[in-house]
Design a protein around this nucleic acid. Structure first.
Length: 307
DNA sequence: GACAATGTTACAGT
DNA sequence: CACTGTAACATTGT
């Protein structure tokens, strides 16, 4: 799923619903030999300690760092959740149903689990008021781990990440400085490099470059200053728009209430291949091309190539 | 059946 | 050592 706007939407939901709640129990069905010894709850021993550490503590806040959700607890511990491709977090009133062989968790009041994308519940925190925070993750790629809150900055899970694109400090100069480190990469790939800038993925990189009128295979070193500044502006605006619209639910992403965001209704490029470009007077067509293993969507007319 | 899917990372090869 | 490409994680929808 989730790129910066979706993760931000989730974090805001967590702040709204679960701050102040006390942990009564934790459950997961993640696991398997492949994950033995890993630094996350897919390792059985890790999960045992994880559960012991959190029992009885209270949630005191939530933050986002790149595409990671951070949930802070009262005992100087923070859960870090990376939802990867298909994870999303929901809050509600769920019950464990032993009779079912899969889809074991059910919602007490209908709601979210009607949506097939919400059925794959892999991780559950039950609070003392008997409500739940759950992680649905169809493809089981997500990472859930535990870090001491005061060691977050230096954690292996976050130390490699580049700056947050939406801070005021991240101005045009900082943007150029970061991108200059990959000056001959396709600009789309550079925008998605989490060590350069944190939080942009495949959907938003396509949308940013469509708005800036720059071909995704352009090289930073060849793009004129004017277009660099257009990409910078489009980045800020597109990410903010994603947040304002509650994220992108073209695929499985749902917000904390299990409901869809609206950004997918405003796509100009992503997954619009073979459709006419919506840029007025352009007359171009959206094409799809694999760039560095990821599928890029762009207009063959108004997005100019600089190499 | 073939193919594609919002992400990351370990590893093999150059 | 630095860089690059591929496979792997697992499952669903088209």
């Amino acid at each position: 799923m989730p790129e910066l706007p979706e993760v931000e939407t989730t974090v805001r939901g967590i702040r709204k619903y679960v701050v102040g709640k006390k942990v009564a129990d934790c459950w997961t069905d993640y696991g398997g030999d492949y994950h033995k010894g890993k630094d996350n709850i897919k390792d059985k021993t890790f999960f045992k300690n994880f559960r012991k550490t959190l029992m009885g503590t209270k949630i005191i806040g939530a933050d986002r760092r790149a595409k990671n959700v951070l949930i802070h607890f009262s005992n100087n511990h923070t859960i870090l959740i990376h939802m990867k491709m298909t994870g999303h977090i929901m809050y509600g009133h769920y019950i464990f149903d032993k009779k079912k062989s899969r889809d074991q968790w059910s919602a007490i009041d209908e709601g979210p689990l009607q949506d097939p994308f919400n059925r794959f519940i892999r991780f559950v925190i039950t609070f003392s008021d008997n409500t739940q925070l759950v992680l649905s993750d169809m493809r089981k790629f997500a990472k859930v781990t535990l870090i001491k809150t005061n060691e977050l900055e230096t954690s292996l899970h976050t130390e490699h990440l580049g700056p947050e694109p939406l801070t005021e400090k991240f101005n045009l100069e900082a943007f150029k400085e970061r991108l200059s480190k990959r000056s001959t990469w396709p600009i789309k790939s550079a925008l998605m490099d989490q060590t350069l800038i944190a939080g942009i993925g495949n959907i938003y990189s396509d949308e940013i470059l469509w708005r800036a009128g720059v071909h995704p295979e352009s090289h930073f070193k060849a793009i004129p200053a004017k277009q660099i500044s257009l990409i910078f502006k489009a980045m800020k605006e597109t990410l903010k728009k994603g947040i304002d619209l509650g994220g992108d639910s073209m695929s499985d992403y749902r917000n904390i209430e299990g409901k869809k965001g609206e950004f997918q209704e405003h796509h100009q490029a992503y997954r619009r291949n073979k459709l006419p470009c919506k840029n007025k007077g352009c007359g171009g067509t959206i094409v799809r091309k694999i760039i560095r293993t990821r599928s890029a969507h762009f207009c063959d007319t108004h997005q100019k190539l600089f190499v």
